[in-house]
């Protein structure tokens, strides 16, 4: 069961997101994260889906997605070596004033930043690979983690190739 990042270009039509997410639930495919956002082209959205499965399952997922009328392009980014993955998270932690210095040190090491602070808490914005965010979260958990909200992974091809190129 390998992890795969699949990017889709989808027409912003009624129910398009439901068609994609329903396909995963209806056919029993795994879905770890799904992000949807507008592209620079009017009427088109980009979806990034993290899924896992053995090769025949991933092949079926891709073919089933391609079959959807509103889906213009499906790409398994994982199979393309030259790509970048990024995720952002907001992490809220219990921090008493005397612990602040210690936290600033960790934040510095992770190249994160503090975006809100109260007398007993702070919100940290961190971006990077899924693994980096997970290790940050694990590191601060013992201090009193309040909550984590993650965006899900975004992926983009390196070089001048357009990730959201629409021809299938």
């Amino acid at each position: 069961m390998k992890k795969h990042i699949i990017t889709l270009v989808v027409e912003n039509k009624f129910g398009a997101l439901a068609r994609v997410s329903g396909l995963f639930s209806g056919r029993g495919y795994n879905i770890e994260s799904l992000t949807v956002n507008e592209t620079e082209k009017p009427g088109l959205s980009n979806m990034t889906i993290i899924t896992s499965g053995d090769d025949p399952v991933i092949e079926q997922i891709i073919k089933q997605l391609r079959k959807l009328v509103n889906v213009l392009r499906v790409r398994d980014v994982t199979s393309l070596p030259e790509h970048i993955e990024r995720e952002m998270a907001l992490v809220k932690i219990h921090v008493m004033p005397k612990q602040r210095a210690e936290h600033f040190g960790i934040i510095e090491a992770f190249r994160a930043r503090v975006i809100d602070m109260t007398h007993d808490s702070m919100i940290v914005e961190i971006s990077g690979s899924e693994e980096k965010i997970s290790s940050y979260v694990e590191l601060v958990r013992p201090y009193g983690l309040i909550e984590v909200i993650r965006t899900g992974v975004l992926a983009m091809l390196k070089g001048s190739t357009v990730t959201t190129e629409t021809s299938k």
Partner: peptide, 16 residues
Amino acid sequence: IVGITRPIVKHSYLIK
């Protein structure tokens, strides 16, 4: 009905 039938149609439209 568009939602109910989504997994069993080839495609569907809600006319707006």
